[in-house]
């Protein structure tokens, strides 16, 4: 079965490393994906604040295009947390509120489209664990991430309010994958706390403070790096660290990578193909592995 891949706007710019590493990892795991042809904006957070029904229409166009591709049993792979929420929200509202459904159906018809409601919107974390399975992932590991302490960070919109694949308060899918890759995961309470979202660009002081709280907690709990599953979380947590150093006294730099980049690393794929050259804060050298997987030494 081929998954219809919906990258979303962020994965074409700030989140390119996610786009690249996800495709590489899917190739390595033999998960067939096909990018949704002529996809449009999901109608995310900022759009919803101006016109809700048009936001649903935007998502509905994507769903209609995906359904046309998949012959009635379409599985859509949506890596961006905001797109995942936006598309799922539209799906729920179309199912629950006939008035919205009627309006969107008429608008789709005017554009020569139709949507019957049968597309399943799924996050790669969900697909990797439920459909591919940890055994297949484990079989592909060539260079285990031994000695690496990872703080798995889910952010907000991936698990709230619609995710059914994991727990809203204490999701563990990413931890399962990281453990299979040979990494050590830390236990921390902020894995679904908000990173500040678009506030880092608008009300910077508040947005940065939220990101700082997450990074500093990960540091205090001994994490070597933070793994993310959302392009906005990754951007906020990584690209403003210089400012956080100056403003709040963030201690040093904390690498922040997509969970797919870490999967690719463990699979032995090249840094460039995983978009690791695009990171602002390079990943830690894998000293412990070179030393034979002994105690991890913090530099």
């Amino acid at each position: 079965m081929t998954y219809v891949y919906f990258p979303g706007c962020s994965l074409t710019s700030t989140g390119r490393g996610y786009h690249e590493s996800l495709q590489e990892v899917c190739r390595a795991l033999e998960v067939p994906i096909q990018e949704l042809e002529d996809w449009n904006c999901c109608g995310a957070t900022s759009y919803m604040a101006v016109d809700e029904s048009k936001a649903f229409a935007l998502s509905a166009r994507n769903l209609a295009l995906a359904e046309r591709l998949g012959n009635g049993s379409t599985q859509m792979m949506v890596p961006c947390a905001a797109c995942y929420l936006g598309l799922n929200k539209a799906q729920h509202y179309l199912q629950e509120f006939p008035a919205i459904r009627g309006k969107v159906d008429k608008a789709l018809a005017a554009a020569g489209l139709a949507y019957s409601g049968r597309v399943q919107i799924r996050h790669p974390l969900d697909i990797f664990i439920k459909d591919i399975g940890r055994d297949k992932i484990a079989a592909r590991v060539a260079k285990p991430l031994a000695g690496l302490k990872v703080a798995c960070y889910y952010g907000c919109q991936l698990v709230r309010p619609y995710a059914e694949f994991d727990d809203q308060h204490n999701p563990t899918t990413m931890e399962t994958i990281m453990t299979v890759l040979g990494a050590e995961v830390i236990d921390w309470p902020l894995k679904t706390r908000c990173c500040g979202g678009s506030l880092t660009g608008t009300i910077e002081d508040v947005g940065l403070r939220l990101s700082y709280i997450i990074l500093t907690e990960a540091q205090k709990r001994g994490a070597d790096l933070v793994a993310t599953a959302c392009p906005l979380c990754q951007f906020n947590l990584e690209c403003y660290q210089g400012k956080m150093n100056g403003r709040f006294g963030l201690n040093g730099k904390v690498p922040v990578a997509y969970f797919t980049q870490l999967m690719g690393l463990a699979f032995g794929l090249s840094n460039k193909s995983l978009g690791l050259n695009r990171l602002f804060v390079p990943l830690p050298e894998r000293r412990a592995v070179a030393a034979g997987g002994g105690a991890h030494v913090r530099g």
């Binding site: 710019s13 996809w39 449009n40 166009r61 309006k103 005017a110 050259n277 695009r278 602002f280």
Partner: peptide
Amino acid sequence: RGRMGVGVESIKRKDELHRLFTAM
């Protein structure tokens, strides 16, 4: 780092989208 371009992102079938919006 190739994470921000200077071009403008756009879909191909803008007319389709505009018909959708007008109908809404």
